[in-house]
Nucleic acid binder design. Structure first.
Lengths: 212, 212
DNA sequence: GACAGTTCCTGCACGGGTGTAGCAAATTCC
DNA sequence: GGAATTTGCTACACCCGTGCAGGAACTGTC
């Protein structure tokens, strides 16, 4: 490979830090790789070379590839999930449904704008089936939370009929709209900001849900 | 593996068919694997064992793994793309926007219901970067077509202001709604049919787009 | 300054997937 | 029925990623 020659010639030993202090560095390197090349490219070897270290050093920090990726996802998605749930819970104005939707989307998009790379990682998809399970768990969590937020809202505001049958469809539609809004926000080729995009999409989704 | 012992004991040679006649069988096997385990599981070896044949036989039909997967996607997605574009072009009632949306979603969902496995394959995601490019190409095609359908519609029906800025956001929202509707339709745990789900979602999306 | 302990690197074995060469069997044609 | 050809199978070499030893280098301490 490209390493052997360079190694013997000029490469110096990495400084002694120990697994504890190196762990965050490993996660940083993994994060950088995941942002540019997707989670599928986060391999022990890739992380090691990215931080100028050999693979056993990475194994000293995380016993496993899945353990590494899970640690990465945990660290990255922790405040993400909090932001989503906060956006849901904090925007329950009982008298103005449109405002509730708009506020919720604004909160969501501001959270997305604050940590765009994290969102890119989470949305990039999960090639490894061992990791896919964790993704689905998080998604299911958001799904139930969103359901419990929307169900009483629709009962109170619009007296929607046949709600239990419609809810799964509406929830999927709602979450798809959330993902779409974040995608549009992170798309660098436009000039939308979190607040005006949140207002725009929030209003549209509100119209879709009213009288559903 | 599990094969060596059984091979020597009882396995018979597969009949002579030749690459030409075996090619569709290979694609069928690949399709079955893709449906159950995702496109990522479509490997030369997996396809070969699935059809009771050894890998060189598969290599005689497709010189490459990507060539195999691309042939699969081409065969499967051909009438899918046609159905989508037909749904877009065929539902341009110039006087009744809601009906246009409803008809479009109905056509889309009927196409999805007619070939559910194909949709599952296409939506399952693409781990291989060599394949991802082809996915993005197809998606971009649909995107531009959808844009050209929606742009004049919004000008004519609602005189939407600042359209060129809003269009990208609306298109992404629209396509997300399409994907969501198909997902809901293919979700076996509900009792929606293509027509009533198309009506329901079509109306909701119409409300979202009106006065956007 | 030497020593013990920690940390890092070289090197290997393994598994899974790819792609290919050479041999054996079945099929076709005469 | 026998030869030529087509087709499939066995076996190999290769790459990449994983995970693990064992030895070398650095660190802090006495």
């Amino acid at each position: 490979m490209s390493s052997t020659a360079a190694d013997h010639a000029q490469r110096r030993r990495a400084p002694h830090l120990g697994p504890e202090r190196r762990r965050p560095q490993v996660l940083d390197a993994a994060r950088a790789i995941a942002v540019t090349d997707g989670i599928g490219a986060v391999t022990i070897g890739a992380v090691a070379t990215a931080m100028g270290v050999t693979r056993p050093v990475v194994y000293a920090c995380f016993s496993d590839r899945v353990e590494l990726v899970e640690a990465l996802l945990d660290r990255e998605s922790a405040h993400l999930l909090d932001a989503i749930l906060a956006a849901l819970h904090g925007s329950a104005d009982p008298d103005d449904p449109e405002r509730a939707f708009v506020d919720g989307f604004r909160a969501l998009l501001n959270a997305a704008a604050a940590a765009p790379d994290t969102w890119r990682i989470v949305f990039s998809g999960e090639p490894d089936p061992a990791i896919a399970e964790r993704f689905r768990a998080a998604k299911a969590r958001v799904q139930t939370e969103a359901t419990e937020w929307i169900r009483p809202a629709m009962e109170r505001w619009w007296q929607t009929t046949d709600l239990e049958r419609k809810l799964p469809v509406l929830i999927d539609l709602f979450l798809s709209a959330c993902e779409s809004a974040v995608r549009s926000l992170l798309d660098t080729s436009n000039d939308w900001g979190p607040d005006d995009l949140g207002t725009f999409v929030g209003r549209a989704v509100h119209r879709a849900f009213a009288d559903a």
